[in-house]
Design a binder for these strands. Sequence first.
DNA 1: TCACTAACGCGAATTATTTGCTTTTATCTG
DNA 2: CAGATAAAAGCAAATAATTCGCGTTAGTGA
Lengths: 198, 198
Amino acid sequence: MIGDKGKDWHKVMVSKENPRPGGRSARVQAAVHQAVRDMLAGMNRADVTIPLIAQRANVTPSTIYRRWGDLQELLADVAASHLQPETEPPKTGSARNDLQAWAEQYADEMSSGAGRQMIRDVLAVSDSANAEKCCIYTQQQLRVIVARAQERGEAFPTLTELMDYVVSPIMYRILFDQVPSNDYVRGLVSRVMPEKTD
Amino acid sequence: MIGDKGKDWHKVMVSKENPRPGGRSARVQAAVHQAVRDMLAGMNRADVTIPLIAQRANVTPSTIYRRWGDLQELLADVAASHLQPETEPPKTGSARNDLQAWAEQYADEMSSGAGRQMIRDVLAVSDSANAEKCCIYTQQQLRVIVARAQERGEAFPTLTELMDYVVSPIMYRILFDQVPSNDYVRGLVSRVMPEKTD
DNA sequence: TCACTAACGCGAATTATTTGCTTTTATCTG
DNA sequence: CAGATAAAAGCAAATAATTCGCGTTAGTGA
């Protein structure tokens, strides 16, 4: 039947999400997220409070408290949803170049003031669900590059090796040390690639 | 002159510390830190508030607000001061074993509930001074091991390699992924050591 | 269309935070 | 070893954030 009038496709689609994702609830979530992003961009972090966010989102503070609990959790939620990459790693000539380009961009994004802060926000919450999400996003990106290499028959590190020897050092430096330079990132890539002229 | 009665040696010693570290100020700091540790150990994290800490430390809340600003900064301060190792890495037979033993213990400590939480506390604050402290502590430990290897003339990775390929992957997993197993840590150590029977 | 209820809004009660002022006491000077 | 000085602590009132009970709105399923 063509005009099936599907009566419950969305019920299935979102079955694992919030029990009542329709209309208003979704609007509130969007408005609150947007308000947080705007305020984070335009003012001192310490001045961002839940009452202010609520005002800007045209929502009652108690709504935010009931849905998110406290500011930290809200910030972590917003940060995690922005750490999700929206595009695949760009294709270059080779898998190796794909990796290098991806790693440099990853390091750049995460090193920026906004990126660093988002990571901190995600990690600040004791429930590590958001942190794991970030890890999974990264792995998804890398899996694409690994798959391309396989298709072409190029020798390539495993996903685990990439996480351990490229992603981890970048993230450690961003969090604990000074931000990684492009040269540093290129060095990490060289280290995990099978011998090559470089 | 022997009984020099040095009148300002301590002024020099602590010149980079708080401007007034003597007596009362130090007592307050100790009492507050102790109160935080006790409460963190014995109750739900979400129930730890500054007024409660103040009560337990026999101090006025405003004292804490004035010195530390907010709960996050206080927790970060307490966590950082406990992340400082108090002993040198234990000596085993070889530098390689020193490294392996140290890495396993490091991973264990940091993976524990308390350890993870301390790291999160340290990272949660935007001023990254505490985070850098942690990094420096780790490097100090590793430098001892590297120096021992040099003394004995053993081939050994550089400090940078150890940070990038042993410490970073451990920390990444603790923060974003599942906690590293002992086998995993041993694998990391094998990877950075010059070819060996393993 | 109607019943049902999750999620929101409202406002009062509670709790945390800020702030101006006073008091204590570490540190410096003579 | 007295003062003198001022940093840090205490106190309490004012402000702001958070919680909570209860009534209302509006997705959802029949």
